[in-house]
């Protein structure tokens, strides 16, 4: 079962029409999610992580979005190209095969219907069962994510739930039809620390017990280290580095990844201030000829601004900055050479 491909994003570009012109939100993202694994996408806000997630389910406003590239989903009845799927089939895929929990739990539910009604509406639609059974199932799911008593809670409205409970209820809703892939877009950002731990615990349980794949979007490396098996680091609408959690933490190649990891607070890290990355991410309404990170990069060369970067890869570990990899191995060699001499 392990390592069987479930979803493959291939050179995805998402362009949005906005009032200020065309906005290149995603600029050629490729990634792969296998069955039963948790893949993390990390990056600053505005780097296109959420946009990538939304594009996988085609949740952007249809008439104002252009997609390029492809998203292949391995359905039970063969491979499907999501970006070319007709609307009707798309609705059968959303929620049932691929579900998504969005960032703000407060905004996940329609305020005018009970939480149970909104969960059961989805179950009834996808599983073609009656309303009563739907409500019973909703109550059971709420208890599964630790909301008791499910039956009573299902009859309550979103405004009667706390933020953490809403987020868990949203997860309960999204796993109600046993999707094979759950996209969790910053599921812990709006929550306090104890709630965060609970939500992560639920995600882990889903992976272990229901063999669900999870695409976890976050800006928090700590969350990644805790539950992901592989990571993609995104910057300015591109994946700049990907690999297993081990590889990324032990041996980050791309200057951006390295800067991010240096920015993680550490236990016993002493009193020196945390390192921050100077500057701001580029605006994505223009073409970026060279490396998007170059203006903020400590080791950027002149060519970095104009030429596209060579890609470095070593098995599962992959980076958009070959220069940094070379420089590093060069330095290592020199060091070794120095020691030998």
């Amino acid at each position: 079962m392990e390592n069987r491909e479930l979803l493959r994003v291939d050179g995805l570009c998402t362009d949005l029409i906005t009032a200020r012109g065309l906005y290149h939100a995603v600029r050629g993202v490729s990634l792969q999610i296998n069955e039963g694994e948790i893949l993390g996408i990390v990056g600053e806000s505005g780097c296109g992580k959420s946009m990538t997630a939304k594009s996988i389910l085609r949740l952007n406003q249809e008439d104002k979005t252009f997609y390029k590239g492809a998203v292949y989903y391995q359905a039970k009845d063969g491979e499907k190209e999501i970006l070319k799927l007709p609307k009707k089939e798309m609705n059968l895929l959303r929620g049932k095969e691929i579900a998504m929990v969005s960032q703000n739990p407060m905004a996940a539910f329609d305020p005018l219907y009970t939480v149970g009604d909104q969960i059961s509406e989805m179950i009834c639609y996808h599983k073609k069962i009656g309303k009563k059974e739907g409500m019973e199932e909703a109550a059971r799911l709420l208890e599964l994510v630790g909301i008791f008593p499910g039956e009573k809670r299902a009859r309550q409205y979103p405004h009667e739930f706390s933020g953490g409970m809403l987020q868990r209820a949203a997860i309960a809703m999204m796993i109600s039809c046993s999707p094979r892939l759950l996209i969790a877009d910053e599921p812990t950002t709006a929550l306090d620390v104890t709630m965060q731990a609970q939500v992560l615990e639920i995600l882990k349980k889903l992976k272990d017990e229901m063999h669900m794949s999870v695409l976890l979007i976050t800006h928090n490396f700590g969350v990644v280290a805790e539950i992901c098996s592989r990571v993609c680091v995104m910057y300015a609408g591109q994946v700049v580095e990907s690999g297993t959690v081990e590889e990324i933490f032990r041996d980050p190649i791309h200057p951006y990844t390295r800067a991010l990891i240096r920015g993680i607070p550490r236990r016993g890290g002493g009193s020196e201030p945390l390192e921050t990355i100077p500057g701001t991410p580029p605006r994505l309404n223009q073409e970026i000829p060279g490396c998007a990170f170059a203006p903020r990069c400590a080791v950027a060369k002149e060519s970095c601004y104009t030429c596209s970067q060579e890609i470095w890869s070593n098995g599962s570990h992959w980076s958009r900055c070959a220069g940094a990899a070379m420089a590093r191995s060069h330095a290592e060699e020199q060091q070794r050479g120095g020691r030998a001499g």
Binding site: K54, L57, L59, N91, L92, L93, R94, G95, K96, A99, M100, S102, N104, A107, A108, F109, D110, P111, L112, Y113, E121, M122, Y125, H126, A170, M173, M174
Partner: peptide, 26 residues
């Protein structure tokens, strides 16, 4: 345009449900 609408769409509900059940009531 509200965020919960995207969620209703992510649930796979058909457009008629989004418009008449959720949109219009609000």
């Amino acid at each position: 345009k509200k965020p919960y609408m995207m969620n209703v769409e992510a649930k796979g509900m058909p457009e008629a449900n989004r418009i008449w059940k959720h949109g219009l009531k609000n």
